[in-house]
Design a protein around this nucleic acid. Structure first.
Length: 496
RNA sequence: GGGCCGUUAGCUCAAUUAGGCAGAGCACCUGACUCUUAAUCAGUAGGUUGAAGGUUCGAUUCCCUCACGGCCCA
């Protein structure tokens, strides 16, 4: 039995590599220095007259060979660096017989260092006329086909490096992702927020209703949880006097995988003292408009066929009103749990009977209303039962000063005026503990240390979390979260 | 978790109707070519058809199980 199923093409490449090595060619040198990127060169010659010829300024550039058009004693090659792609012209009479013989042994996929001058071909394309060529790294495996690229989604995710190399659209998504995060960071720094890092491994997972991943600390012999949210730590920082903090955080939820969910995901969470949830709704609109302007160049964006208007004032609507308007629920049954469960059943949805009414209402909202909210919409007035960390409304004690933001039928953000009454917080945790006992494994744990911190006093504060992956999906018109995460979670392929 | 679809050469895809020698383009290899850009021309080579089992004289094709992936639903 063979150790590895080598295809001939790899054998051939290895043989070539060995030949070069036997001729004392350094296959993996590390001393080549470049003077320009492809983009630098293009910028430098942009305004040059067409007379730039062999006696023009010379450039030293490096990149991966993406295509070779061989003409016997001359060849055009296309090569690519981080800034772009450029054509080069290699002529036997320019680089010499030996060097040309060496050049002919190179392959698509190899890295080369090129020195030369710029000229225009007959078709008007700026091209590097090479007078010196250096091998910088030999490749063994062939790149995917140059025209169709790499299409198989499984291979694109498992071998993202090939996807990035072959599919400019994929590359653009991740460049845009980086710019979006950059724009968000600049937005908060500009407003006097402090960027912080809080624990990813937590002894008590808190800040969201979700199942955590468990890990184990050997030396302490204790279980730890990967955070489902950074919330309770960020609020400790507010208590400590950092009145404005934010963390662009990776969080983890031990739940299903779908086009909307990856087990690890990126969230922006921020807290602003002496503000309430209304202030944060205003701020959220500002953030989105800032990002839209920075990365999309327009406040009107297209997502999966919908035109989303970021620029117009966003609608704000109470949860119960939304249920009436979009869910077609008779207002008379809105505080009748049995009626609601019956209504859900009539629509073909099963609701767990042990849930308290607040959870039933929000579940109905998820099923009936959420998909309808295409334009940016804030929903407010969430029940206390499903908002254990949010401040109670001053006039209606059954709801909280909380909102969620929906765009394109998906939850994008969740924010509220923070609960800073330690006794109320303790009671909320106790109720959560009851829910957990009743079988709700997403309910909060009691966190006595957090209560203790609140007892020292937390200034009136509002906080919010925004799903960055979903936000990037929106701005890159991506249907699946896997298109915006460089290495999405995959089961092992079994080919190892 | 359920439903539907997919997995064939390094890559992109045929062939499955009704079971009958597994095909093409690009890439690779050989040869020709000093302005091509999906270069062109000629030739060669490349396959345990995702894995295991079953039916059959014969399976990429039909049946069963499994793995991985995509879309939809929960």
């Amino acid at each position: 039995m063979k150790m590895e199923n080598k295809s001939d093409i790899i054998e051939q490449q290895r043989e070539k590599l060995l030949n070069l090595k036997n001729n004392n060619v350094n296959l993996f040198p590390n001393d080549f220095k470049v003077s320009h990127t492809v983009k630098d060169i293009k910028d430098a010659i942009k305004n040059s007259p067409d007379t730039v010829k062999e006696d023009g300024p010379s450039f030293v550039v490096a990149g991966r060979i993406m295509a070779i058009n061989m003409f016997g004693k001359a060849a055009f090659i296309r090569f690519k660096d981080r800034s772009g792609q450029l054509q080069a012209y290699v002529r036997k009479d320019k680089i010499g017989d030996d060097a040309y013989g060496f050049f002919k042994q190179l392959d698509i996929g190899d890295f080369a260092g090129l020195s030369g001058t710029m000229f225009k071909t007959r078709t008007g394309e700026w091209t590097l006329l090479v007078y010196k060529l250096t091998l910088l790294c030999k490749s063994i495996r062939p790149l995917p086909e140059k025209f169709h690229g790499l299409k198989d989604p499984e291979k694109r995710y498992r071998q993202r490096y090939l996807d990035l190399l072959m599919n400019p659209d994929a590359r653009d998504i991740f460049v845009k992702r980086s710019r979006i995060i950059q724009a968000i960071r600049a937005f908060f720094l500009e407003r006097d927020f402090l960027e912080v890092e809080t624990p990813i491994m937590q002894p008590i997972p808190g800040g969201a209703e979700a199942k955590p991943f468990v890990t184990h600390h050997n030396a302490l012999d204790m279980d730890l949880f990967l955070r489902i949210a950074p919330e309770l730590y960020l609020k400790r920082l507010v208590i400590g006097g950092f009145e404005r903090v934010f963390e662009i955080n990776r969080s983890f939820r031990n739940e299903g995988i779908s086009t909307q969910h990856n087990p690890e995901f990126t969230m922006l969470e921020f807290y602003q003292s002496y503000s309430d949830y209304n202030d944060l709704m205003d701020l959220t609109e500002e953030i989105f408009r800032h990002v839209a302007k920075e990365v999309a160049g327009s406040t009107s964006i297209t997502y999966q066929g919908h035109t989303i208007e970021i620029g117009k004032k966003w609608q704000r609507m109470k949860l119960l009103s939304a249920l009436e308007e979009f869910g077609g629920i008779d207002p008379d049954i809105l505080n009748d749990k049995e009626g609601l469960i019956e209504f859900a059943a009539s629509k073909g949805h099963k609701i767990t009977k042990t849930w308290r009414i607040g959870k039933v209402i929000t579940k109905l909202f998820d099923l009936l209303v959420e998909p309808e909210l295409i334009q940016p919409t804030f929903i407010t007035g969430y029940p206390v039962e499903v908002s254990p960390l949010a401040r109670r409304n001053d006039t209606d004690f059954t709801i909280t000063d909380r909102f969620e933001l929906f765009i394109a039928g998906r939850e994008i953000a969740n924010g509220f005026s923070e609960l800073n009454d330690p006794d109320d917080q303790r009671n909320r945790f106790l109720q959560q503990v009851e829910d957990r006992k009743a079988g709700d494994d997403e309910a909060h744990f009691m966190d006595k240390e957090y209560i203790k911190a609140l007892e020292y006093g937390m200034p009136p504060t509002a906080g919010e979390g925004i799903g960055i992956d979903r936000l990037v999906m929106l701005f890159t018109d991506s249907a699946s979260i896997r298109e915006v995460i460089l290495f999405p979670h995959m089961k092992p392929s079994g080919n190892n």
